[in-house]
Design a protein around this nucleic acid. Structure first.
Lengths: 210, 210
DNA sequence: TCATTTACGCTACTGTAGTAGCGTAAATGA
DNA sequence: TCATTTACGCTACTACAGTAGCGTAAATGA
């Protein structure tokens, strides 16, 4: 597919140079420090050309971050507690990678930074929001499969509300990053999965047989 | 306290007129449609005066939304399932109130809208982020008290991870609004609380006494 | 009364996202 | 060869957030 089309072909180097320049600025100076004019100048590309490929700064930033994320799958070891914990840690790692962007290293960093701007970009532009929702849906479908297999194995309740379970798990991570500023790491992922699997209700003691 | 200070006193009508004008624009046209120039002109206030009170547009928007939220407490009826559900519904209502801002009514609206912009504002400005975290901490302290009382009553497990429980509950709501675009309503609040309280693990059957 | 202090309005400015319009470069098809 | 199509660069422009500086208004304290 994609036979040679009519007019002048796009310069493939433009994408490469712009995205690399933009990634540098974004990670070094944060979302606000990412200036389209500066990207254009440093990449040696006309600003108008840049806008022909990415209609807004939000779109460019999304493209930059998308290139940095390697969206590998979810392992299924047969131990649902471990698999969910690993999955949560993967999401946490991706969030933490963006969290520190544009801040001076050293003091501990609780900023949502780039993550919050990308979420806002999804709210501002329907196409970006749709793209994000597709990424979410793909991830979610994989995780739902994982859960369904564990349910059939008898590890999880038969009447499990799998969609809510995933909301709770991933939601807690995003909530910490975006709202409370609390850290998300392996230890938290373990607490999170434990709480979701074991539940909060007190189980009635089983009386010993007479 | 706050004795009459030295210089010319602030005009109290400025706050009133600006915030009302800004609220109108924000709710009608969304965050992007909120223009400082237009607010200043419509409110009959100099733009510079406006900037002396709210240092950025983000600060103004936060002030507008803060005025619209009535942050009442959390009820404690003695039934933790019901109390948590009511609490989740309150948060969901507050989120939904902002969700539709700036969009044409009619077709169903899954946009994060103003919520996402406020979260981003908290990430952009340390003072706004701190303010948000304080609101969160106050709410959280109340909810932790509710949970602790239920735990002492024996409704909840003795070794409960209360902080994680609240992350899971509130996090799922924010996650839906900000990331997946799914609706948050009373029915969802009920599913959410049920999942968190009952857990996902399959309970071993208790063998009948011989 | 008068200096001081703080608030307000006004004009003018910078910086940045995004657009319009034109000329030109590089490909294809006839 | 030449018209067509698409990409690129350039200049100039609008819109909006935010700032600087100045003059003036309204309060207090001496």
């Amino acid at each position: 597919m994609n036979q040679a089309r009519r007019g002048r072909p796009r310069d493939a180097q433009v994408d490469e140079r712009v995205l690399r320049t933009a990634a540098g600025l974004l990670l070094e100076r944060g979302y606000n420090g990412l200036s389209i004019d500066e990207v254009a100048e440093r990449a040696g590309v006309a600003k108008t050309t840049l806008y022909r490929r990415w209609p807004t700064k939000d779109h460019l930033a999304v493209a930059v971050v998308a290139r940095l994320q390697d969206d590998d799958g979810i392992d299924d070891t047969g131990d649902i507690r471990r698999d969910l914990t690993d999955y949560m840690e993967k999401i946490a790692d991706a969030l933490n990678r963006m969290r520190s962007a544009g801040r001076t290293a050293g003091r501990d960093d609780r900023s949502a930074g780039v993550v919050a701007e990308l979420v806002a970009a999804g709210a501002r532009h329907d196409d970006i929001g749709e793209m994000g929702r597709q990424v979410y849906a793909r991830r979610n479908a994989l995780a739902l499969g994982l859960i369904e297999r564990a349910r059939l194995r008898g590890e999880l309740r038969a009447d499990l509300d799998a969609a809510v379970l995933l909301d709770q798990l991933a939601g807690a991570l995003y909530y910490r990053v975006l709202v409370t500023g609390a850290p998300v790491d392996r230890a938290y992922a373990e607490r999170l999965v434990a709480a979701a699997l074991d539940g909060a209700m007190n189980r009635k003691e089983i009386p010993p047989c007479p």
